[in-house]
Write a protein that binds this DNA or RNA. Structure first.
Lengths: 359, 359
DNA sequence: GTGAAAGCGCTAACAT
DNA sequence: ATGTTAGCGCTTTCAC
């Protein structure tokens, strides 16, 4: 092995060039595998590269090319499994294409969302995967549109006005949830959500309500939606239970809502599913190992990420034309937290012969 | 409001300069608030900037300064609350100092860890916050050392050989856990961990064992550690239980281990805490809303992040000298999953008069 | 095949 | 106080 040469600063392309006795241009060509370089020179360059441990500065290189091989990702938060997995997946897909991923969290703030998209524009990112706080009409999307940035919007989206969008098929999933709950005898159900997740919340509520009322016109569906504060939703749910309401099932439209529901059940000493059933959007690893295990709507994260990247790169490579809206089907995992409600009584819960296996 | 001028490409500093009738250098000075510019020209520049919507390209600017205002972060994974919160926090702290954060996930792979640090070096990041897969002797840390990059190592660290380190005080926390379990009468305890988390696992096991044996010399402590595969740990735990072992308490050294334990309890129909108690490293939101609520060692994420950034920037700004190792104290949250084991019997569990409130 | 020259967008040293 | 010059590390014509 050739021993490395110590240098104060990192070796530049010129250091390689002079050591190999060629010009910087030739080095550049070798680095990019251009065929028209004399084999002899290729070897000399390769030797010099190895000796110096040379690696190109991708940012300087991008500067010259006027197009950066960077994809920006904006997510509302990173504390939940959903976005964590999403970002991990997007990173892999971007790297497969030779791009770097730069992720920013807007902490559920629309103002920060705008701030971040500006900075990404300053960075001249090649494209953006945006998971908006609210929906595709937020400030980030407008900014992207106005500055003709390439972008795809995922997760919390309604329509395909401006950009390609990819999201879970909330409506179909909600219809299936309604079918399951009504089928298990539930006639009084509570739906909880967050208004700031406008896009997905709406589709989820509408699909659920329509199907439930269609199957059981006599059923009662209450909806509790707080604007953006999880604390406010908790208050609302608490007040609702406090005034004596006792639905037989709760359907949460997002992950933290499921936690709020569980926490309020505990507070009142309600057992799940005996006293009340629960199902929520977003699966998490813990949900299958607790007592009861918690039923969940599983969003196809890999499919969403894959689709988003495919579409984004098509746009980056110049595809024009109408934006498309892709919906990915969800799985419904009915676990122990959903029980049977008999004769319209406020309790459910099947006997568990033996504890089911967790995996 | 001045109306924006449409331009094919983004306005550069020269566009601003010519519109304002000054040189690019003057524009640069105005942008950086240099005081020696004639007020008249300051105004002209500001007007041009506003009219064109000019914003500097931070990457081009960094190229020239030869120091990039970018902090790299490397984490083993992003699916858990711990690293998600950590990254969110680090992002905030970096931005407070005018830096951007670039996060990469190495998916628990040491090879990828090295890959990523190389890329970050290529990017000439100003500094790196590394949460290594194994410990501070992994390839990323060596690479950083070898190329004299500024860095701080967090979470899975043993000593302070090379870089400043910040982590939770695993040892003290484990001692406290031992005290609690032994105090509640447990005399046969199982500790589960992952060998690839070498650094933290070791400190956690040693502290626990020493304290437990000190308080109750007759107690039995079994340790199950799989190298790196969570599946292998699951197999080991399963085999251990299958051959008839029935500890009265399980102490998990990392978040996923807690899930494995719960899942294996379910599989055998063991109730927690009646049949077996459980406590694990890393708190998560769900742990306080399930039945039983799960006891946890809470790592002080904000403190770790804050400390790490402080130390990193000191190094970036040139501080020399011995690396220091900072330990941040953990909280122990004893929840329902830890019960009392009476008279050395294999079962525990206190009566729960009323279900405790969740928050 | 190769290298000189120009330039991506910006800043810093130095004249003026 | 300002502009000119030079150059960060790289790529890309375009002559030779």
């Amino acid at each position: 092995m050739t021993s490395r040469v110590a240098l104060a600063r990192r070796p530049s392309i010129h250091d390689v060039a002079s050591r190999a006795g060629v010009s910087a241009a030739t080095v550049s060509k070798v680095m990019h595998g251009v065929r028209t370089v004399k084999p002899e020179n290729v070897r000399r360059v390769q030797t010099a590269v190895a000796a110096l441990g040379y690696r190109a500065d991708p940012l300087a290189s991008d500067l010259r090319r006027a197009k950066r091989r960077i994809i920006g990702v904006i997510v509302p938060e990173l504390e939940s499994e959903f976005f964590g997995t999403m970002v991990t997946e997007l990173e892999r897909l971007a790297e497969d294409r030779g791009y770097s991923l730069v992720t920013a969290t807007c902490r559920e703030s629309v103002d920060r969302e705008e701030d971040i998209i500006r900075r990404m524009h300053d960075w001249r990112v090649a494209g953006v995967v945006l998971a908006p706080v609210r929906d595709e009409h937020g400030p980030a999307a407008s900014y992207m549109k106005q500055h003709s940035m390439s972008g795809v919007i995922i997760d919390r989206v309604l329509s395909d006005d401006i950009f390609d969008t990819v999201s879970a098929d909330s409506s179909t999933a909600s219809i299936e949830v309604a079918r399951q709950l009504v089928g298990k005898g539930h006639r009084h159900m509570l739906v909880i959500g967050l208004g700031s997740h406008a896009a997905t919340s709406k589709a989820r509520i509408d699909g659920f309500r329509a199907e439930a009322l269609d199957l059981a016109p006599d059923c009662r569906i209450d909806v509790l939606v707080a604007e953006s504060q999880i604390g406010a939703l908790r208050e609302a749910v608490r007040a609702y239970f406090d005034r004596g309401e006792h639905p037989t099932a709760v359907y949460s439209l997002f992950a933290k809502g499921t936690l709020v529901a569980l926490s309020e059940f505990r507070r009142r000493g309600w057992r799940c599913p005996e006293d009340v059933s629960l199902i929520g959007f977003d699966d998490a690893e813990w949900m299958q190992v607790t007592w009861p295990s918690i039923a969940a709507v599983v969003q196809p994260v890999e499919a969403i990420a894959g689709n988003a990247m495919d579409m984004l790169f098509e746009r980056i490579e110049g595809r024009e034309g109408q934006p498309t809206a892709r919906l990915q089907r969800c799985d419904i995992l009915l676990r122990e937290s959903v029980g049977v409600s008999r004769h319209g009584q406020p309790t459910g819960g099947e006997e568990q012969a033996t504890p089911p296996v967790a995996d």
